[in-house]
Design a protein around this nucleic acid. Structure first.
Length: 789
RNA sequence: GGGCUCGUAGUCGAGUGGCAAGACGUCCGCUUCACACGCGGGAGACCAGGAGUUCAAUUCUCCUCGGGCCCACCA
């Protein structure tokens, strides 16, 4: 059992369950990951010091297309399916080792015994179990459907893998014969002419209203297709008439379904033409040239105009995305957007508006979730099917995990049609299927019922705003579908870490800064403190070394001030020396108490910005600028009296307590200083607790009541008053352009009557603090300070 | 075209229905026995613009402008 271990058997303490993003094992942690690792780790450390049983796992998303590319580069394309998989796995494991080291160098305090990998047998079993469960509920199905397809990767892709880019193209006007008349249609995809199954116009378009219902003849191919009317057609675009192909774009798909049109598959999976007669096997690019040539010959190409339009590209290879009809696996999501939204709304989001991204996305689901990918390095889709009738043959739960691409089904004959052609599915799962069940995985589902009871839903997840529509969306959906609950209590949605130029970091833009660079120049704690100080979590944050320097300055200040404290008070003082405690001591201890309060509130609401800024403000200004300066003369007295002891005690106490409070954010520096103080390890300590005031003006500090009766006004008030006097003297010395430690002859203070006793009583001490020979005090209506050099 | 979000001193960045945190930078002064990666002090914001609600708006509502993100459309 290590210090960061989750205590599985301990049912007495409250659990704090973290669902961190499993990084894709591409070999290097980027700044965004360094951000969330630092952030969630601080919360984990805080909760441990608050007595929580913290379940902080580490997970890895290991399978994926980029690994296949890298493996292909290294070994070529000749490997067998299982060999290829093994090589991909080997590469991912190597990457994982590197990335884990990087995480550890950020101080990540996850429990290494709770590591999960998406390619492991046990993880695979659970993913397949999830799919099997949904299949039994009728939510997993296989069907021919139009899918977005990458002809380069030869796989279907999902809408979040699509990016759009503006490109130049030509809009072609082509004449279709309609009996003795003709209709000119506009298209940017003449190469798909052979798949034209209709001509569509807007029903309000008077130019064409008399043609609707008639048949048009497709040029070159001669097929007769209906002219249909639909609101979706824009009267103002081109000629206002379009050809409908199956499938040129999404409108085509919609019109195809809506109007019950014929299906002509235009291209094959490699993007070669089919069903076109003589052009079959030709690439889209060549076909385009050829078709336009032919139209020109026949004088049916009326006009060609240059236009710019958005083209959908596969984000990984920049190949144009095509729509084609393909047999794929789906999970029903379309009908459940209201359930997803409902579950999403029952989660606490920070920032709260982040939930809107989920809602927007869920409301626009058009098709079910296409979960199959025609790849090798992924979780196998755990089904077989009958080649004759299409019946799906599911494995037994006890046989999981299975790999139908390599294994034969247990069933010999199709239970539906009796056919013996049982085929194992070759496709693998979309990565999001793997990662959508992380809250279930870390809670021991479906095996460890006892843990599941306690550790589900996860207490908190941190993730980037960019993957709300994917990771958060699919997690919420899958968990609803599988266990009928929300997966997470609190969603922390962090903004993106932007490059110094204010735009997203991209390798191609050269504006990337990697965590190692910052770590080697500044160290772990500076980077972690920068994370805490970088504003509210939901905001995008621009990375800049200036900001990092601010974090560094505080760390330096902390180290230097600690050096002073240790020099002034080298030995631990067990008992608080009550006799020597003065106003400044009680004042700073009260300020510390207030800092505990605000830091605790901030940590409890997962707000590291508030926690760090409140703590730093207290430490730098109240403690260093005033308290330390005020007690220097006491601790440096040659004869150590009660007052010196009290000051030494207070210095050590404030520093030690502060280290506890700040240690979740800067664990290494805090621990290092703590060690020189001779205290036990911070990680074994509990967080200090805020002490309520006993009555209006009494302070309870370490169990001792400081009553205002002693100084006849409130300690806080008295301390602030005395510090005001000191501040005023500093100001006047500065105005006189003399050093602050320069001895001056006298100070005269006018104070309202209520403060007279306090200031008078402290005049000797004020003299020592301000280096003045004489201090005189008198009662006056208004407060003022005057110095004589 | 629609949605979300942001717009606070040169910069970063909190915050609130009632005198606008803090930090960096800048300017002035100070080599003070923890720290010049420091100390003290100063200047600098009509809280994007306009309208409304209110005794009171930077804060709430609406509109405009500008930045970011997302969605849809683009035959």
């Amino acid at each position: 059992m290590g210090i960061f271990s989750f205590h599985h058997e301990d049912e007495s303490r409250r659990l704090f369950v973290i669902d961190p993003p499993p990084p894709f094992t591409d070999g290097a942690l980027h700044m965004g990951q360094a951000y969330w690792v630092s952030y969630i780790d601080a919360l984990a450390r805080y909760k441990r010091m608050r007595g929580f049983n913290v379940l902080f796992p580490v997970g890895w998303d290991m399978q994926g297309f980029p690994s296949e590319i890298a493996t292909e580069k290294k070994y070529g394309k000749s490997l067998q399916r299982d060999e290829f998989y093994a090589k991909c796995a080997e590469l991912s494991q190597q990457n994982l080792e590197v990335m884990k080291k990087q995480m550890l160098s950020l101080g990540a305090s996850f429990d290494q015994s709770l590591e999960y990998k998406t390619l492991s047998e046990s993880y695979r079993r659970k993913v397949q179990f999830a799919l099997l469960t949904l299949f039994k509920k009728g939510m997993t199905y296989r069907m021919k459907h139009s899918v977005s397809w990458c002809t380069n990767c030869v796989t279907s892709i999902s809408r979040e893998e699509i990016e759009e880019r503006e490109e130049s193209s030509t809009l072609n006007t082509i004449a279709f014969e309609v009996g003795s008349e003709s209709i000119n249609i506009s298209t940017t995809r003449p190469e798909l002419l052979h798949a034209c199954v209709a001509v569509a116009v807007n029903p309000d378009d008077e130019r064409y209203s008399k043609l609707v219902g008639k048949k048009a003849v497709v040029p070159i191919y001669g097929r007769k297709v209906p002219i249909i009317a639909d609101q979706i057609v824009d009267k103002g675009f081109g000629t206002g008439a379009e050809m409908v192909c199956t499938f040129g774009d999404k409108n085509d798909v919609l019109l195809y379904h809506k109007h019950g049109l014929e299906l002509v598959e235009a291209i094959d999976e490699h993007g070669k033409l089919k069903n076109s007669g003589e052009l079959d096997g030709m690439s889209l690019k060549d076909a385009r040239v050829k078709v336009l040539e032919k139209l020109k010959e026949k004088k049916l190409l009326i006009e060609t105009t240059a236009i710019k339009h958005q083209v959908k590209k596969h984000d990984r290879c920049s190949t144009n995305v095509e729509l084609l009809s393909s047999t794929q696996w789906f999970i029903k999501t379309k009908d459940f957007s209201d359930k997803i939204i409902e579950s999403g709304k029952s989660i606490t989001w920070d920032p709260d508006f982040a939930v809107q991204r989920l809602i927007d996305w869920a409301q626009f689901i058009e098709w079910d979730w296409n979960i199959s990918r025609n790849r090798i390095f992924g979780t196998p889709i755990p089904f077989w099917y009958c080649a004759d009738c299409g019946e799906v043959i599911a494995p037994e739960e006890s046989d999981l995990p299975v790999n139908p691409a390599l294994e034969k089904a247990k069933v010999q004959k199709c239970p539906k049609c009796g056919s013996e052609s049982i085929v194992g599915e070759q496709a693998t799962c979309d990565n999001w299927v793997d990662s959508a069940i992380t809250p279930l995985i870390i809670a021991g589902w479906p095996d460890d019922k006892n843990l599941f009871e306690r550790a589900y839903p996860s207490t908190v997840r941190i993730q980037g705003s960019d993957i709300v529509r994917t990771w958060a969306f699919y997690t919420i959906f899958m968990n609803w579908a599988l266990v009928g609950q929300k997966p997470i209590e609190n969603m922390l949605i962090n903004g993106m870490v932007l490059g110094p130029d204010g735009t997203e970091m991209h390798k191609s833009l050269g504006n990337s800064i990697y965590p190692e660079e910052v770590l080697s120049k500044y160290g772990t704690d500076v980077l972690r403190l920068w994370v805490a100080m970088s504003g509210s979590i939901g905001k995008d944050k621009r990375f800049s070394y200036e900001e990092v320097d601010k974090a560094k300055a505080f760390i330096t200040k902390l180290k230097n001030s600690a050096k002073f404290v240790i020099k002034a008070a080298p030995a631990a003082i067990e008992e608080q020396p009550h006799k020597g405690m003065g106003i400044f001591d009680v004042w700073v201890l009260n300020r510390l108490n207030m800092a505990i309060k605000s830091a605790t509130e901030a940590y409890d609401s997962f707000n590291l910005y508030a926690a760090s800024s409140k703590l730093m403000d207290f430490y730098w200004h109240d403690f260093c600028d005033y308290y330390i300066e005020n007690v220097k003369h006491r601790v440096s007295e040659p004869e150590k009296g009660e007052s010196a002891k009290a000051a030494a005690y207070t210095l050590r106490h404030v520093l030690s307590t502060f280290l506890q409070l700040i240690s979740p954010i800067i664990p290494f520096v805090a621990e290092e200083i703590n060690e020189t103080l001779g205290n036990e390890s911070l990680m074994a300590q509990q967080m200090p607790k805020y002490a309520e005031k006993k009555s209006g003006a009494d302070y309870v500090i370490n169990g001792v009541v400081f009553s205002s009766a002693i100084v006849d006004i409130d300690y806080e008030d008295a301390g602030t008053m005395l510090n005001n006097v000191i501040g005023e003297v500093r100001k006047q010395k500065a105005a006189s352009r003399i050093a602050l430690n320069k001895q001056i002859s006298s100070i005269h203070i006018n104070v309202p009557e209520a403060y007279y006793n306090v200031v008078k009583g402290y005049s000797a001490e004020l003299g020592k603090i301000c280096k003045a020979e004489k201090v005189s005090v008198s009662v006056s209506e208004s407060y003022s300070v005057a110095i004589n050099i």
